[in-house]
């Protein structure tokens, strides 16, 4: 780890101005991913600007009935928040399935969204990686690809995004609030993360120096109150997802037809993956296992598999079906 300067920011504006002015400066939130990367040499900033103690720790209802979550809210506090538990169970469940109790007490909302892939080759500075060192190649291609992407990958990068929380938020149509040197802006969470294409070094669309200040959830509906998150993993806890599914269903009680649906996937792509094709198939279809299977198939039709990760396609299919089936049965 190279020597670096540490600064505790007095407020968000100062933090943004400091980082924006220095290409070798980065924000420090909970640090659970950044400190890890600095030890490995994956990240080598010359300055850390600590934003973990900024007053971004509130979870509050918005005038419109939504929920605004400060970027420094700890994962455990967000999961335990009564409104999250009541209105957005997919988010609470996603948070609680991530990492460990200790890490959730440290990790922040903003930091969770910006955590980087756990691709082994990305984390090992002795191997080529286009994400870590653009143009050096991708060691995962032709290597140990068991945990890698089946959707949206490129010839330059096949890494997956590791966050559970982001998958829950994506299914709930969350918005991200960002402060930059030029002022504040908001964008749908769906637009935050990128596919790798030919520039996998960029995980998100944020510019250097832009700071996530809050995440906002739209008003809850009957559907989001019944949302859920299912994480599939080998170890029963404290493991990243092989595949995960966040979903919500709105089914007409009389006709048994799906009025609306939300499906998002984790562990399958470079970004949290909104399963729009599956949702399209579901809307207007009977809430039956057959429909769920068709929907899953429609989403996964574009999957491209490798030696080690081919299992993810049937696994994602089965998990989507299982989650939708459980949601349907729970409403009966």
């Amino acid at each position: 780890m190279i020597p670096f300067e540490y600064r505790r920011a007095a407020d968000a504006q100062e933090a943004v101005a400091t980082v924006a002015a220095r290409p070798d400066a980065v924000f420090l939130g909970g640090g659970t991913n950044l400190v890890d990367h600095m030890k490995l040499g994956v990240a080598a900033p010359h300055m850390l600007v600590d934003v973990s103690r900024l007053p971004l720790t509130e979870v509050e209802e918005t005038p419109g009935g939504g929920l605004r979550v400060g970027a420094a809210v700890r994962n455990s506090d967000l999961a335990a928040h009564p409104l999250v538990r009541q209105r957005y169970p997919a988010l609470a469940r996603a948070l609680l399935s991530g990492a460990s109790g200790q890490l959730r007490n440290t990790a922040t909302t903003g930091g969770n969204l910006l955590q980087r892939t756990r691709c082994r080759y990305f984390q090992d500075v002795t191997t080529p990686c286009n994400k870590r060192e653009p143009g050096s190649g991708c060691a995962a291609i032709g290597g140990w690809d068991r945990h890698h992407a089946v959707l949206g990958a490129s010839e330059h990068c096949i890494a997956v995004h590791p966050s559970d929380m982001a998958v829950g938020l994506l299914a709930l149509d969350a918005t991200v609030h960002v402060l930059g040197a030029d002022g504040a802006r908001s964008l749908p969470l769906a637009d935050l993360h990128r596919l790798p294409g030919d520039s996998p070094e960029r995980d998100t669309v944020l510019a250097h120096g832009e700071l996530i200040t809050a995440v906002e959830l739209p008003p809850a509906s009957a559907m989001t109150r019944w949302s859920t998150y299912r994480k599939v993993r080998e170890r029963a806890s404290y493991a990243f997802a092989l595949v995960s599914v966040a979903a919500a269903l709105d089914v007409d009680d009389d006709s048994g037809v799906v009025r609306d649906a939300r499906v998002a996937l984790g562990g399958v792509a470079h970004k949290p993956w909104r399963a729009g094709r599956a949702e399209d198939v579901l809307r207007g279809a009977p809430a039956t296992e057959e429909s769920f299977r068709l929907a899953a198939g429609a989403e996964l039709a574009a999957a491209e598999v490798r030696d080690g990760n081919a299992y993810k396609v049937p696994l994602a299919r089965n998990t989507i079906v299982a989650v939708l089936r459980d949601l349907t049965e729970a409403r009966r």
């Binding site: 505790r8 640090g31 400190v35 890890d36 200790q102 440290t106």
Partner: peptide, 26 residues
């Protein structure tokens, strides 16, 4: 030393956290 085992857990400001994944200066 990477937040993958829990052996370094302490109660930091009253909450259980991993002391290996945070800088002392903070």
């Amino acid at each position: 030393d990477h937040g993958q085992c829990g052996a370094c857990t302490v109660l930091l400001e009253g909450r259980r956290q991993l002391s290996c994944l945070t800088f002392a200066v903070a």
